[in-house]
């Protein structure tokens, strides 16, 4: 058996790859559900019903997709330039913490809400940027691989959040629970649907996906970041300033992940805890890969993950299957997607 590279990977195959990957992941996860002793079709039916079956479920799915779109974009823009930002989780927390900290400034009280929201979003994005620029600096200056440093910084970031919310940012009214002071009312994102948690963050996330698509498809920066990823040496020969391009990519990627954290605090929680993120940062990596690093595709992949997470929660309550099945399915779909992409690029010959 050997593999032969396809000269022209067909467009339809490339589009089918994520669908095939998701189906394969669902089949394997179905086996795990069956082993646990439940009816697979009933389980998947309940997942769909939980995610779409009611107004509340549907709004929860969209609420859950919001941070996932942003962390997915964060990973997608970085991976495209071969910047291995695995630190989305930490950047998410720094963005969240920055909003809570920024909200403590007394001068904000008199400002109009849209301005406060804008400033808070910027604060969150900048915090995420800083946490990614650190490991990028180490790579550019000392040649330290950013995969491991960004991974390690995730743990440092969560501990830093814990330090702050048990220290200077602790909410004195939270009955001793370690949580930050709430963000000011002016910084709360408006709701999109009454009596649900769905908030304007979803619009911001979708606009960001479109903006990233435009940046990558229509600007010099997009071309350069792609060239830097495809072949850094050739790109350098062609006059692409590698260092500067990577810094810009890191600002965008870290900024998006920080924005995800900021929006989650401003739209859903209102304050920061150390369990704010059910690993949104890591899921973002899966979502970016499922989308084949395409910013518009990220929206679809984030929706798929959100359906799994929200649906599995309600399915779990009904059938007693651990809701970790959602994490298993999403993680599996990353592996199956890698294989599917491979099959679009290679032919298997006997």
């Amino acid at each position: 058996m050997r593999f032969e590279r396809r000269e022209h990977p067909s467009a339809s195959l490339t589009l089918l790859a994520p669908i095939g990957a998701v189906l394969a992941a669902l089949v394997v996860a179905g086996l795990l559900i069956a082993i646990a002793g439940a009816n697979v079709f009933e389980a998947y039916g309940l997942i769909l019903k939980g995610a779409f079956g009611s107004r509340l479920g549907f709004s929860e799915t969209l609420t859950r997709a919001t941070p996932l779109i942003l962390t997915g974009l964060a990973a997608a823009v970085a991976f495209r330039a071969r910047l291995w930002n695995i630190g989305g989780e930490g950047q998410f927390y720094m963005g969240a913490l920055a909003v809570a900290g920024f909200g403590m400034i007394p001068a904000l009280a008199g400002l109009p809400a849209p301005l406060v929201i804008l400033l808070c979003l910027i604060a969150g994005a900048v915090a995420g940027m800083i946490l990614l620029l650190l490991p990028l600096g180490l790579r550019l200056k000392f040649g330290v691989d950013e995969v491991v440093t960004t991974l390690l910084l995730n743990f440092v970031a969560v501990l830093f959040v814990s330090l702050m919310i048990e220290g200077v940012m602790k909410d004195p009214l939270a009955f001793g629970w370690p949580q930050s002071v709430p963000v000011p009312r002016e910084a709360e994102l408006p709701k999109l649907m009454a009596r649900t948690r769905l908030h304007a963050g979803l619009v911001i996330a979708v606009v960001m996906a479109l903006a990233v698509w435009w940046l990558q498809a229509r600007t010099v920066f997009g071309l350069r970041s792609r060239a830097a990823g495809l072949n850094p040496r050739a790109a350098a020969f062609a006059g692409v300033p590698l260092g500067r391009t990577l810094v810009a990519v890191a600002c965008l990627s870290g900024g998006l992940a920080g924005l995800a954290g900021a929006i989650e605090v401003m739209g859903v929680k209102g304050y920061v805890t150390t369990d704010l993120s059910p690993s949104y940062g890591y899921s973002g990596i899966v979502i970016a890969m499922l989308a084949n690093l395409n910013p518009i595709g990220v929206i679809g992949a984030a929706l798929f993950s959100a359906v799994m997470f929200v649906g599995a929660d309600s399915m779990s309550r009904a059938l007693g299957i651990p809701s970790y099945i959602a994490d298993v399915t999403v993680a599996l779909s990353l592996l199956t997607m890698l294989v599917a992409l491979f099959l679009t690029q290679y032919r298997i010959r006997r």
Partner: peptide, 9 residues
């Protein structure tokens, strides 16, 4: 990416 996928899975 494969390694991260294995870790998540």
């Amino acid at each position: 990416v494969t390694g991260l996928g294995i870790t998540l899975f």
